[in-house]
Design a protein around this nucleic acid. Structure first.
Length: 309
DNA sequence: AAGATGTTCAACCGCTATCGC
DNA sequence: AGCGATAGCGGTTGAACATCT
């Protein structure tokens, strides 16, 4: 006893993999594939449990694995996605070809620790234009956000909204990655991918945001994206730092991203809608008027959401 | 020089979701 | 429907390595 249930063979090796073990696993998988991981160790001649083999293959040995430091683009994408979905590492990894959830998780955790230990000199939002790119992570997040991340505001497992889904702090920023590798703004990725050939994000006055361009939206005070299980997303955004003032600089208007009839993403300025959320059934960003018809989860969000903008 | 402390990251653990019967 | 097996996920651990004192 004391061993994991999958490791109940007589001799099960644990710990780091030796090059010989790696070779055995690679040779077996490349010639036979893996139908059932529990059968792999015996057939490959390894004194490991199937679970360990699976992990070793997925996180280290598979041929399409990508190694080395994260690029600034990857870092930005991780930050953006983490802002959208929280600690859902596998989901985040699915947007970074060749990267594993484990690697991203490790990166994120060590990054958080590092930043927490170094108190920032500023407690306010730093605009993307004020900060150099030599420290890519700082183009988005400040210590405030790290606190937020640490509090795990976006629940990683629940399928419903918690009260603590809300950001408790007065301001936050939020970034949309407009990446060629994505089929649309990443936050909306889960809600029905767009045709990768046709999507475009338009700013007001039909100014097209190029693929690969990073657009940072900073939410106004108390306004933060709220996400439950990715079926519903509330995105009150005020556009700042993107070079174009679409929001009018006050809180009587708010910008939201919407998909138009021809599957383009459009930033629209609207008058004082209190809430937006992604209505999966309708396939569009909804306003406050349809929230009452939504789930009780959304009601939870709404009740906790600032009542005035 | 060497022990203490910090960092990284591969691997493990426990849990849930899914599958197949 | 129920149940055991398996896959997959995210939190955590701890060995190896790096840096500090």
């Amino acid at each position: 006893m004391g061993h994991h249930s999958c490791c109940n063979q007589q001799k099960v090796k644990r710990g780091l993999w030796s090059p010989e073990e790696d070779e055995k696993l690679i040779r077996y998988i490349t010639t036979h594939g893996y139908g059932c991981w529990s059968e792999v160790p015996e057939k490959a001649g390894l004194q490991r449990c199937g679970k360990s083999c699976r992990l070793r293959w997925i996180n280290y040995l598979r041929p399409d694995i990508r190694r080395g430091r994260f690029t600034p683009e990857e870092e930005k994408l991780i930050i953006s996605l983490h802002g959208a979905v929280g600690n859902r590492w596998a989901h985040i990894a699915s947007h970074l070809p060749g990267r594993t959830d484990n690697e991203i998780k490790n990166y994120w955790n060590s990054w958080i620790k590092k930043k927490i230990r170094k108190p920032s000199s500023s407690s306010t939002i730093i605009s993307s234009t004020q900060k150099s790119d030599q420290n890519p992570q700082f183009t988005f997040a400040q210590n405030q956000h790290l606190d937020l991340f640490n509090q795990d505001n976006f629940s990683t497992k629940s399928s419903h909204v918690h009260q603590d889904t809300l950001f408790p702090l007065p301001s936050s920023s939020f970034m949309f990655e407009i990446s060629p590798s994505l089929e649309g703004p990443s936050i909306f990725q889960e809600n029905g991918p767009l045709s990768s050939e046709t999507w475009q994000l338009h700013r007001q006055h039909d100014q097209v945001v190029q693929q690969g361009e990073m657009v940072q939206y900073t939410t106004s005070s108390s306004l933060t994206p709220l996400i439950d299980n990715l079926d519903n997303i509330m995105v009150p955004i005020e556009v700042q730092n993107c070079g174009i003032n679409v929001g009018g600089g006050n809180l009587t208007t708010i910008d939201c991203m919407q998909r138009n009839a021809i599957n383009e993403w459009v930033v629209e300025t609207q008058q004082c809608p209190n809430y937006f959320f992604w209505d999966q059934a309708e396939g569009q960003l909804g306003g406050e008027e349809i929230i009452p018809a939504a789930t009780s989860n959304l009601s939870t969000m709404m009740s906790a959401f600032p009542s005035s903008i």
